[in-house]
Structures are given as structure tokens and as C-alpha cells.
């Protein structure tokens, strides 16, 4: 019973927090300088791990896909499968997981450290709204940086898939490109990028919430960073599934 009450309390606090962030994000002043600085930091920190994490996925899809598609003599179709899988599913989901692991945890740790040191209270004393100054830039930065990174990983994923399909898998280059361009619609790309933005929003909100509600000491900061990663991964997979079902229902 106690546990239930506490989780309800957390849920309520989360809703209130999201409301605060939403209000601060649409009303001026928005600290654009801080946002840009944060975007720069996040993009620099994430670009290598995100690329390294997503590029092998295209290769694995080609590697395993060729065998399956060969059973039906349809290995020329591999590229259209690879394309939809990378653009719509794996690039957004994995890029976001890595952004959560790298950027989300560092945002949570930074806000948590500020909270523990009393800097958040100092901001409030100076009548600077901490949500506005500390959380909103992180959320905006995540929402923008995640899709940008996903564009890069789309290219890398397709390229590594191409490497394993054409030079190593023996599929004709012309057939690969033809099926890739014929089957992939701009809608696939936009769906992928849109998903990335949604995941980025989730990362920023969770990191901000857990960072602001950190416990007392240094160990709690580490715990907040770790909790951010774990709960964002859960959220990403959950939202991904919901979005896939909705898109399937809408026939996209």
C-alpha cells in the first residue's frame, strides 16, 4: 500500500513537472545561449558512441537477412528490408538509447550535482526559475540533437549494410540501389526522425526530473544518472512499440 502510494506520488510529481516544463518552454524568456551551448556539448559527446553503436546493426541485418532472403531467391529485395528497418526502427531506437546513455545520464548528473551543491536553490533565490534555466535547455537540446544524430546513423547504417550485402554478400550493386530507392519513401525518413524527437523529449524530461529530485549525497547523483538510462531505455522500447502499432493501424 505504501509502495503504491509512493509510486502514485511520483507519477503525480512527474505530471506536474512536465506541465512546468511545457509552460516554461513556450513562454519567454527561453535561454537560447544555454540551449545552444548544451546542444554543442551533447552532439560532440554523443557522435562517436552513437555512430559506433548503430553502424554494426546495418551490417548484422545484411548478414542475417541474406540467408533468409536467399531461401526464396529474393536476395535482391534485401536492401528494401534493410532500408525500412534502419530508417524506421533501428536507427531511431538505438541512436536514442545511446543518447540516453551518454547525454541523458550526463544531464541528470549535472543537474543532480547542482542540486546537491545547493546551486539550484541559489538560482531560485536569484529569482531565476531553475526549471526554465536548467531543465528546459536540456530538453530542447535533446529534442533537436537526437534526430540530427539519427540522420548520420541512417547513412552509416545503410552504408555498413551495403558493405555486407554488395562486396561481401555478392548482391548486385544496381539491384541493391534500385530496391533501396524504390521502396524507401520520404515518409519512412520523417517517421524515423519524428520518433527520435519523441525519444529525445523523453530523455530530456526524465533526466531533468531525476536530476532535480536527487537525494542528498554524491552516491545519489550516480544513482540518478543510472536510473535515467534504465528508465529511458524502458520508455523508448515502450513508445516504439506503441508508435509501431499506431502506424500499422494507420497503414503507413
Amino acid at each position: 500500500m505504501d509502495k503504491l502510494l509512493r509510486s502514485l506520488q511520483t507519477l503525480g510529481a512527474l505530471v506536474v513537472f512536465i506541465g512546468q516544463v511545457a509552460r516554461s518552454a513556450v513562454t519567454p524568456p527561453i535561454y537560447w545561449g544555454e540551449t545552444l551551448r548544451l546542444m554543442n556539448v551533447l552532439a560532440k559527446r554523443c557522435i562517436v558512441p552513437v555512430s559506433l553503436a548503430v553502424a554494426p546493426v546495418g551490417a548484422v541485418i545484411s548478414l542475417q537477412g541474406i540467408e533468409i532472403f536467399k531461401l526464396f531467391g529474393a536476395e535482391r529485395m534485401l536492401s528494401s528490408f534493410l532500408g525500412t528497418a534502419i530508417f524506421r526502427e533501428y536507427s531511431p531506437a538505438l541512436a536514442s538509447v545511446m543518447v540516453a546513455a551518454q547525454a541523458g545520464s550526463s544531464i541528470a548528473a549535472r543537474i543532480g550535482t547542482m542540486k546537491v551543491r545547493g546551486q539550484i536553490d541559489a538560482l531560485a533565490v536569484m529569482s531565476v526559475d531553475p526549471v526554465r534555466y536548467v531543465v528546459v535547455p536540456g530538453v530542447i537540446a535533446c529534442v533537436i540533437v537526437a534526430p540530427l544524430l539519427s540522420v548520420l546513423t541512417n547513412i552509416l547504417g545503410i552504408f555498413s549494410g551495403w558493405v555486407f550485402a554488395v562486396p561481401l554478400g555478392g548482391i548486385d550493386h544496381g539491384a541493391f540501389m534500385e530496391h533501396l530507392t524504390a521502396q524507401i519513401t520520404p515518409a519512412d525518413l520523417w517517421i524515423g526522425l519524428g520518433k527520435c524527437s519523441v525519444f529525445g523529449l523523453g530523455i530530456g524530461l526524465i533526466a531533468g526530473y531525476l536530476g532535480l529530485n536527487v537525494g542528498k549525497g554524491a552516491a545519489d547523483v550516480g544513482k540518478a544518472a543510472n536510473d535515467t538510462v534504465v528508465s529511458t531505455i524502458v520508455l523508448i522500447l515502450l513508445v516504439d512499440y506503441a508508435v509501431s502499432m499506431a502506424l500499422l493501424g494507420a497503414g503507413l
Binding site: 558512441p49 559506433l52 546513455a101 550516480g222 544518472a225
Partner: peptide, 21 residues
Amino acid sequence: AEGVGIATNLAIVHGAVMCIV
């Protein structure tokens, strides 16, 4: 304490990238 946070973060990121590669 900052080192603890950095070590945790590096462990997650390097571990995940290493697994996938």
C-alpha cells in the same frame, strides 16, 4: 564523487558500444 559518476557513465557507454561491435 565526480569520478564515480564519470566511471559509471563510461562503463555504460563503452560496454554498450563494445557489445554491439
